[in-house]
Design a protein around this nucleic acid. Structure first.
Lengths: 162, 162
DNA sequence: GCATTATTACTCGGATACTGCTTGTCCGAGTATCTCCGG
DNA sequence: CCGGAGATACTCGGACAAGCAGTATCCGAGTAATAATGC
């Protein structure tokens, strides 16, 4: 039980986009080359982000991806949900229906106290993720590693020249 | 991305054991019959709980499973870890090593701020689970549904008579 | 009738197949740029 | 020299396979109760 690989790629890629100004879109090929990732598969993840409204894509000759809104309006939860879906970590299959006194018409996801306890933990996880935006992360990185923005832009310029 | 089916089975089964007194072990067959679960597969999950020291198993003619310690000493996190393993939800593959200025000798699971943010959310989830014991859950259920202990014992008695 | 021994029935435990999702890849639809041609 | 039409190169997007973890099952090792047997 673990999150998919794409979550890490998506977060780092979105973070990179915050430093690139994003005058125009950046292609999948360059974004993948930056971390030596398989381009086609990264493209698949980025498509999920587009469907979720986090990234904007422009097709055609000079197309590419860019952030659809400001970094302060994109939380880590948004990205995780976009990649992994919105299903809760714990899935209650309502086995209490088969137990003594189980009623078929009752929604045990609401009633069952086990389900409730697990849902509360789930909520704690989500709240922590929802409270961390791309803007926060960007600021933290720039404080701890001031050279990162320039280094990132530099690397992308190299890739551009190829 | 979701937790395995076995987690739900394990929690409800452990909860049932708290009501059965557990003078002697309860067999997999009866525990499975209680919720109409596949016996062999449930047995596999219970084995994981035994390995984790949560359940005690006695083999042989009148063998079965019983709680290895008091319900107050068993948290939901213990059960989840026993079934799912102790790996964090978010796995950092350290893609920063392939980025600009990436060093092979640095452990980016410690340094990377993305990894740190995800780890904090992970921790919030685990703390919530660690703070909920079987004894808490048992008390909550008995408060909300006072008939449950007797109904549970009754159903197991029926299964016993077959 | 009673102690002893062989049998039996039932249990856990790990080794063994199957299924679905995550991972990974490919080719087609579409667009801006560039080239070529005519005026 | 300038405008426009066609060709071109490069992009995203969804449809198409492969690998692996979760799911499900079976049979063997071991133990306690039971039945049979001899005294």
């Amino acid at each position: 039980m673990r999150l998919g690989q794409g979550v890490e790629w998506a977060i780092h890629t979105c973070l990179n986009l915050t430093w690139l100004g994003a005058e125009r879109g950046v292609s999948t090929a360059r974004l993948a080359e930056f971390y030596q990732l398989p381009p086609a598969y990264l493209n698949k993840q980025l498509q999920s982000l587009v469907r979720a409204g986090i990234l904007a894509s422009t097709p055609g000759r000079r197309g590419g991806f860019s952030l659809a809104r400001g970094p302060a309006a994109i939380s880590l939860l948004d990205i995780v949900v976009a990649i992994e879906g919105s299903d809760p970590l714990f899935r209650c299959e309502q086995i209490l229906r088969a137990g003594p006194g189980g009623r078929p018409d009752v929604d045990y996801r609401e009633v069952c106290l086990v389900s409730g306890a697990m849902r509360r933990a789930d909520l704690a996880w989500r709240q922590e993720l929802a409270g961390r935006t791309l803007a926060d992360l960007k600021a933290d990185v720039e404080r701890s590693f001031p050279g990162t923005p320039e280094a990132t832009r530099g690397r992308f310029a190299e890739l551009h020249d190829r």
